[in-house]
Design a protein around this nucleic acid. Sequence first.
DNA 1: AACCCGTGGGT
DNA 2: TACCCAAGGGT
Length: 350
Amino acid sequence: MRLTDRAFVRRLLSWYADAARDLPWRRTADPYRIWVAEIMLQQTRVEAVVPYYERFLERYPNAAALAAAPEQELLQAWAGLGYYRRARLLQRAATKIAGEHDGQFPRDYDAIRALDGVGGYTAAAVASIAFDLPFAVLDGNVMRLLTRLANDRRDIAKGETKRALAGRAQELMDAAAPGERGAFNQALMELGATVCTPKSPQCGACPLARDCRGLAQGAADTLPYKSVRPRIRRVELAVAVVRRGGSLLMRQRPQDAAIMPGFWELPSTCGTGGHEAYFASLGVAVGKKIGEFKHSITDRRFRGSIYEAALHRGRPQGHCWISAERLSRLPVTTISRKALRQDMLAGPTQ
DNA sequence: AACCCGTGGGT
DNA sequence: TACCCAAGGGT
């Protein structure tokens, strides 16, 4: 007996009613708060978002407050969450809401989709969760779930496959009743995130297991198939910690930098060999190595060495002395925060 | 379509 | 250790 789409929806919602995690953004009906959550959740795990979410909303409780935020303060609130373009696009969209929409969050799909930083996924998520509109989401969780259920071995890196899966997700959404749309989308993603996981899926706890063709073929954990493999670039990095009293020598990344524009960082240079020469050109004398760190940024793998250092000449071009007090209110790159943490462990110098 | 953008946790 | 990949979007 084939599972009808309506039965699929009912079984999934029944499971979700019991199994849904209690998450901060599930305790509100405010479209602004739901939107902020969805932006933070883009390519980012729930556990990483939670500590940022409440703090961010306390600071920026509505679109007008977000639109008015100083950029450095906004980036500081986002620092460590990654994909920093999201923060700027979020603010641009908030300005649009405060202006063009008169402070009212747009209530139809096309207007939501037109907001900066909102693509197909986020527009469907906000439209369904905040306004009960019948738009199906398609994210990594849903693709994994659907390909496993159908034992579908098509390549999810291809647009054609994604369009087909989006069509299937929308068919299922069309079987959801008014009042169920937001929960249905969240239930699909929740099942993908907690049961139908990429590795070692918990098929014994899955409400759809007896209708899963991937499981029947013993192949659930080999799906989905994705052709593209990223190529990894390895980068060596040397970082200098220069202290003067309670201040640190820092520099600000250019506004047009590809990575982390506008963020503050310790003086640093790529490559293993020539870091002394580079630091010398700044007037910085490198002392002993006080630590190491690792860090990944998308396809780059940084291995860093941290050096204690001193400045003899004047303050080098483009660098500033920043007190710890002021630094706490500025956006600092994660690499520099890791280096400073290591420096503190090595023993705070004078 | 292909490439770019962070970060942390799981295996 | 090395790799995978997550509630994606912009260009």
